[in-house]
Amino acid sequence: MSAHVVPIRVYMRVFAALMVLFVLTVAIAFVDFQHLLPFTGAAIINDIVALLIAFSKAALVILFFMHVRYSSRLTWLFAIAGAVWLAILLALTLSDYFTRHWLT
């Protein structure tokens, strides 16, 4: 079999990292960046941080639990293609909504 056997200690470390990020994301959700930082719209920092943490957690799961780190380039290509196509869907749809009010 060509499958790569990942040592258990790697799984445990990844799981520990996931739990740390999990606690972090809940904690940060209660931090009021709007009042901590001097500029308006600082509340968006909550969303940015939450998404950054979510992407990190997803990356850990994909790379280690789903073995992409040890997989062929083809698997990388498919994983990345999925993300890119979702980005296309989001970006071009939002390009409509973000610019719709420019011409009114």
Partner: peptide, 22 residues
């Protein structure tokens, strides 16, 4: 083919700027 779908929506109320890109 995945980057052009908005050309079906030029008269739908879609943003004119998005329409230009599409």
């Amino acid at each position: 083919g995945f980057l052009v779908w908005g050309h079906h929506m030029f008269v739908s109320g879609q943003s004119a700027y998005a329409s230009m890109v599409f």
